[in-house]
Design a binder for these strands. Sequence first.
DNA 1: ATTAATCCTACTTAACTTGTAGGGTTAATG
DNA 2: CATTAACCCTACAAGTTAAGTAGGATTAAT
Lengths: 153, 153
Amino acid sequence: MSPDRLKARPPDQGRRAFFRPSRESMRISARTQYALAAMLALAEADGPVHAERVADSQEIPRRFCDNILLQLRRAGLLNSQRGPDGGYWLARPAAEISLADVIRVTEGVEQATRRFPRAAAPLDAIWERLRDHEHALLSEVTLADVMSRSASS
Amino acid sequence: MSPDRLKARPPDQGRRAFFRPSRESMRISARTQYALAAMLALAEADGPVHAERVADSQEIPRRFCDNILLQLRRAGLLNSQRGPDGGYWLARPAAEISLADVIRVTEGVEQATRRFPRAAAPLDAIWERLRDHEHALLSEVTLADVMSRSASS
DNA sequence: ATTAATCCTACTTAACTTGTAGGGTTAATG
DNA sequence: CATTAACCCTACAAGTTAAGTAGGATTAAT
């Protein structure tokens, strides 16, 4: 009797409770989303804004918001003042802060990427192309751009 | 005395032990890298190949490799045969399997993405553009392409 | 029957994410 | 100069995910 070879299963359709988009794409942490929301909130104001107000308006957990704003200040994107009537404001005009500037801060730096050997080595060039494109787009779009239109085109 | 406003710190240069590229980019799990390496290894062969040989040639931990190959078969990308002289082989020609096909399997599906409110809402359009571009590129490059050239251009 | 392969589920360990806790420091106000 | 409201800073904790491991069940060639 001929060997009973196991066939690849067809993709299992049906039996899916609700729509889940497949992903092979970038992951954006909540921290980064919060940071961008906070920066945009500050970009819309013209004076110092309390962390409390940023947290409320953007629906960011209060202490976590503190945490993130602090990180953004240390990174050079915000200035701050303490005491009553204190707050945070952008260190540069909104048109001079790109999304990449913000994301770089909250996503941090990655460990030296591991090198994959053999057959997979040529893939490095693909990853590089993806990274370059992503970086180009995120570097080119500023906070001011996001405020002025839904999406840069 | 005028308030001593806290200045944004300049980016801390120096005191960096070694080069760490900043990242705001796609994360590719080890599992996915292994899966792609395994698929490429199988694309280079013409008959069934043992999991052991795939693991060795691509430097994938043995049991983990089993695990991943199994997942790829279930997803419809591989066929297999058990017993001595068994092994795995591509379910379709290498020219008909895109990188996205493989990545979709190992990266799985994402939970419904959380919606961010207010000022950050317009960012959704940006993420979508990034995803679309990424998906387009990864869908267009096949295993055969990767084998035949360093990078598609 | 033996053996060599795939198949399958469950588990473990470490790292990362997402916050929270507990205060310290600064500055405006009366 | 006491009060108070803000930012500043470190550490910690719970939950989730990633990266494998473990132990065996099943299949097929000999």
